[in-house]
Nucleic acid binder design. Structure first.
Length: 643
DNA sequence: CTTTTCACAGTCGCGCGGATGGGA
DNA sequence: TCCCATCCGCGCGACTGTGAAAAG
């Protein structure tokens, strides 16, 4: 790998390699595992590097094998992690090698929420990437051309009949994918040993703002793409550990097709519509502007990609390495690459592959030119500071102190403000991921847009819900009747994203700046509110009917202030009692959240005759909860404080 | 009919320049 | 009186989702 290929100033062009992808059930691997093979089918510039218009190429005949564990009967040993230090050599790392502090859920139960192990855990570091030290054809960016990552949301149902994709998507959320994760961190974590280096360090990557990603993911994240480029939101932000302090690394993100389908939003759901266009040209990689840098640097603080822009302008790759070219209505999977380089930024060509790739399925999104799912729109408005102008209760939302923020600041500084530091979550025994509440199975917008919902109800076991940050959380499967087949698909597949991280170990990865942002209480409310509090309050103003809301989750008492405990108890018996909130303006016609009027919001003509009907209230609209939040002065919306 | 593009309004942070205040 | 540091207001650009119009 040439130096220029990874330097920020150097344009990173798309490789021109094309691959065929094939999957097959693996018989010789651990039970239930499957393999994907990426076979190069077209080669125009072999052994050309990524530098300056170069390409990432595989040598002739090279192929890479991805392996995903489709089921992990024993929960651990059948979870191979493939690391390729040479394209001709595939080495497998048993999860046993990952250390004893990892806990996997094995699953062979296809439809149960919990059974879907993929839904529970972030993947371990993705391996099987194509980087080699010998031929220089390293960057798997090439994969996006003729191949896709495994489908995550519809692996079994949607891809049925697509033999080449149906079985073995490693990254798919099919059964058996492993997500080592640590509940105390609030982050997904992936890890893998450095290939080719027996004594190498194992890097671990934490998705810092995973709670936010999960919120979007459960509705199927959409990312706007425009000609001039649109920033991602949520953006990618990672914590990395396990690097050599003095080693030098390049860090970059690559976005590849997540499945072979073209998607469309129809009937309130995302459905496949033909095959994806794999031949989309354009830059698919974004090198972190601080690359190269030392391991100590990367590990010192979050690594955010807030300036990464997405575009559908095919010509953007030539002059703007800040933009990644995507195609609308295609599903993509961001991947994080960490490449060890020499001190001067040149990739180590000594022969050992020192590249690690990490994929978090909750980062998947569908590229769109206009938002399709109003849930996603609402989430963007609620969480993206740049969209503050579209929040209806804006005035009341920014009374909280600075450190109550839950979402990143729009500042351009990638380090100081934009990150939702997962490290902070490590301070949270009440980390929100531990509470994935019920969501209504369907929400209807204007009576037609039914948004598939996950029912990833994950209730902490009371005996496990101790105050210690190392407490253990278990996932409780909750069966809900899907209204239709697609819902079931979402139900099962999306459970992946709505799940709790399962694990025992809590990592304390605090970073200096992270500590000041998210006080425990804020996250406590966020956690408790996730799905149950105030996320979609504004929508009530539109009078839209809501699907049934499950009862509020029972949170461990340890995690609720005494006052809240009382309120919880109260709400358990009168869940839908409307409570005026303190932030309500005096001259408002309505009380509580119902009075909030959204600016420039699409308003349904449908009268909200159901506002007082418990049967249709969304969990998120629990006014009692909302009031509770406001009483605490740092409700769910207490993201920023205007200076 | 679906998808894309564009102009728009709104918010925010940054940078510049002027005003102000303190010290030499 | 001069110099320097600090504060404040304003303008600009970046960024967002909206909604209409254009394109396919």
């Amino acid at each position: 790998m040439q130096l220029e290929s990874i330097l920020p100033s150097a344009p990173v062009n798309l490789p021109k390699t094309f691959y065929n992808i094939a999957s097959s059930e693996s018989n010789n691997n651990s039970p239930g595992s499957a393999q994907l093979e990426f076979q190069e089918v077209n080669r125009t510039e072999p052994k050309k590097y990524l530098s300056g218009g170069g390409s990432a190429m595989l040598s002739e005949g090279e192929s890479e094998t991805f392996s995903g564990n489709k089921s992990a009967p024993d929960g651990r040993k059948s979870s191979p992690v493939i690391v390729e230090d040479d394209l001709s050599t595939v080495r497998r790392y048993s999860t046993d090698e990952l250390g004893s502090d990892r806990y996997f859920i094995s699953s062979s139960q296809p439809s149960s929420d919990v059974a879907n192990a993929c839904s529970l855990f972030p993947y371990a570091g993705q391996t099987g990437t194509v980087y080699t030290g010998s031929n220089g054809s390293r960057y798997s960016a090439s994969l996006h051309y003729g191949s896709v990552l495994p489908p995550t949301g519809f692996s079994s149902a949607v891809c049925a009949g697509r033999s080449q994709f149906g079985a073995g998507y490693q990254f798919g959320q099919g059964p058996g994918c492993l997500y080592p994760s640590y509940p105390g961190t609030g982050s997904s974590i992936g890890s893998m040993p450095i290939a080719g280096s027996g004594a190498g360090l194992r890097a671990q990557v934490y998705l810092c703002n995973r709670p936010l990603w999960l919120k979007f993911h459960r509705h199927q994240t959409e990312m706007i793409i425009t000609k001039q480029g649109r920033r991602m939101f949520p953006f990618l932000s990672f914590n990395i550990t396990g690097l050599n302090l003095t080693g030098h690394y390049n860090v970059f993100v690559e976005i590849v097709l997540a499945d072979p389908n073209h998607w469309r939003f129809q009937g309130g759901k995302w459905v496949t519509c033909g095959k994806a266009d794999n031949n989309m040209q354009g830059n698919k990689m974004y090198v972190h502007p601080e690359s190269p840098n030392t391991g100590a640097h990367w590990m010192r603080q979050e690594i955010s990609f807030g300036k990464l822009k997405l575009t559908n302008n095919k010509g953007a790759n030539n002059n703007n390495s800040q933009m990644i070219v995507l195609q609308s209505l295609h599903k993509y999977q961001p991947r994080l690459h960490i490449v060890e380089v020499t001190e001067d930024g040149v990739e180590d060509m000594s022969g050992e592959t020192k590249t690690q790739t990490f994929t978090f399925p909750e980062n998947q999104f569908i590229a769109v030119t206009a938002y399709q799912n109003t849930d996603i729109t609402q989430l963007k408005i609620d969480h993206n500071p740049f969209a503050k102008g579209f929040r209806d209760n804006y005035d009341s939302m920014y009374q909280a102190p600075e450190n109550d923020r839950l979402t990143p600041s729009p500042t351009d500084s990638p380090r100081s403000h934009q990150i939702v530091p997962g490290a902070r979550y490590a301070m949270q025994p009440f980390f929100q991921d531990q509470f994935v509440n019920n969501l209504p199975q369907n929400r209807f917008y204007n009576g037609e847009r039914a948004v598939p919902q996950t029912n990833g109800l994950l209730s902490p076991q009371p005996e496990e819900a101790g105050p210690a940050s190392t407490q253990r959380w278990f996932v409780t499967p909750v069966q809900q009747a899907g209204s239709n087949k697609l819902d079931l698909t979402y139900e099962s597949d999306y459970s992946a994203s709505s799940l709790l991280p399962y694990g025992i170990k809590s990592l304390n990865l605090q970073t200096t700046h992270a500590l000041g942002y998210y006080p425990d209480s804020a996250f406590a409310s966020m956690a408790a509110g996730w799905g149950s509090r105030g996320t979609y309050q504004r929508k009530m103003t539109t009078g839209l009917p809501w699907s049934p809301r499950p009862s509020p989750p029972n949170f461990p008492e340890d995690h609720l202030p005494s006052k809240d405990k009382l309120r919880e108890e109260s709400s358990s018996t009168s869940t839908w009692v409307e409570t005026p909130h303190s932030l309500k303006s005096a001259d408002s016609v309505d009380s509580g959240i119902y009075s909030m009027v959204c600016k420039r919001r699409r308003v349904s003509a449908t009268s909200s005759s159901t506002e007082n009907s418990p049967s249709i209230k969304c969990e998120d609209l629990n006014t009692d909860d909302y009031s509770k939040e406001n009483h605490k002065g740092m409700g769910y919306y207490a993201f920023y404080t205007s200076p």
